[in-house]
Design a protein around this nucleic acid. Sequence first.
DNA 1: CCATTAAAGGAACGATCGTACTATTATAGG
DNA 2: CCTATAATAGTACGATCGTTCCTTTAATGG
Lengths: 249, 249
Amino acid sequence: MNQTRVKLSKGEETRAVILKAALEQASLSGFEWLTIGSLAGATGLSKSGLFAHFGSKEELQIATLDEAMRRFSEFVVVPIMAVPRGLKRLSALLEHTMTWTERCGLSACPLMMAIHEFDDKVGPVRDAVVEHMHRQNEGLMRSIEAAKASGELAADTDGEQLSFELFGIISSCYRSHHLFRDKNAKLFARRAFQRLVASYAPPTIVAEPARLKVSEKDAPPPKGSRKNNSHGSKRSIDLSATRKPPVSR
Amino acid sequence: MNQTRVKLSKGEETRAVILKAALEQASLSGFEWLTIGSLAGATGLSKSGLFAHFGSKEELQIATLDEAMRRFSEFVVVPIMAVPRGLKRLSALLEHTMTWTERCGLSACPLMMAIHEFDDKVGPVRDAVVEHMHRQNEGLMRSIEAAKASGELAADTDGEQLSFELFGIISSCYRSHHLFRDKNAKLFARRAFQRLVASYAPPTIVAEPARLKVSEKDAPPPKGSRKNNSHGSKRSIDLSATRKPPVSR
DNA sequence: CCATTAAAGGAACGATCGTACTATTATAGG
DNA sequence: CCTATAATAGTACGATCGTTCCTTTAATGG
């Protein structure tokens, strides 16, 4: 789909090869563990030949981080823009975020790695991580605002609060999946998501409530929940879909 | 309080000094970045003198990880056992987890570091991390069961699901605090916690509902919420305390 | 107090780190 | 096709890595 859009000069070509290897290595061992020597070995280049592309290890780290963000955009941000605004898009964001690394050919998430590797450091790499993550968070908050505007989330929803909680779900899913190797990780995440957006549902007005169908094809459907059970109370939430269904382990 | 309970032999004494430095270093840069040389410099020992205490770098990493867990127990698990079972204890767990590193004299959390450093590795260090985290998770689930037994959480609460979501809050709080340096991180976490336990509240029976006072002194009180607003609907939740109060930034 | 054991230091090892300099080869435009 | 430039390789550097071996100093129990 994307191979050789414009003609790549030789330098850009091998640079791409290097970054691909760097991305895999950084996602598994961290950006500080990116090593000129091992990267040269992985790409078949000489140490100095590889080094010349970046000029310093720090530049290599930043270039790898940028590439990670570029791919995240390609595999998450761009595709969900094809999904209608609102809860569907938020749900699609969750689904795409939970799967982007494997769709991308990576075994782990370089961004998760970067977050925890540089959070307490100082320097340009940390600055780059922070800026990227802030930008990403702002995108998430825009999606939340859109869901508020469409009436699928309560008008007084605190976008910052909700984005905080959404990242929590993603992060917990990551731990369950990678550390615990729990094959139900995504299931837990989807249930948490349902519970979360339900708690931000707009107050029920009179008869026909705002549509709340969430992630019909990406996630297993809530199966006959979502019929907005109750009457007139300020906020009432049907959480039956998130209550202890059998989980194969 | 705890200094020199039993007489420490010289070896045990310096071993403790080493582990203290190792803990600080591991929390900031990761366990793989623990280096015999820098650790020797930090403690005033010689490389070989320090090395003799562990026999290998891997053993040093595991010893440091064990020490981290020991301190986590000392600063989180033990204190919250003095808190009454139920939601109060769950809330105390959140509060203590959010502050234990600084109360412990650390600038970052070695456990968070370990989780993301070893999640996709293989070997004895990863195994140790997984086991520690599983044990910790089981403790959390026992606390959840206690809250179910006391009627503060719905009887059909899925402990695994709730613990998944609680870790998400803690993890997101960690990112907000350390990566974004957001001074409102704990505030977001407390609101997320309130929202979460509210969504697991038992169905309202008749008149006097199960007491839900959560974290009165640790966290800013919900201020006149918690009076269980509505009538008879299957699950009704007052979320006013988590709706966009002004946040100084 | 002295003998035994434990603890710490010194020196060196091969390996690898990031980086600098120079030399060689490949590409690309006129 | 030739030439200017870009890309890669070669080599070497000081530093530090984890680890080993051996010596020296310190603690400890009878």
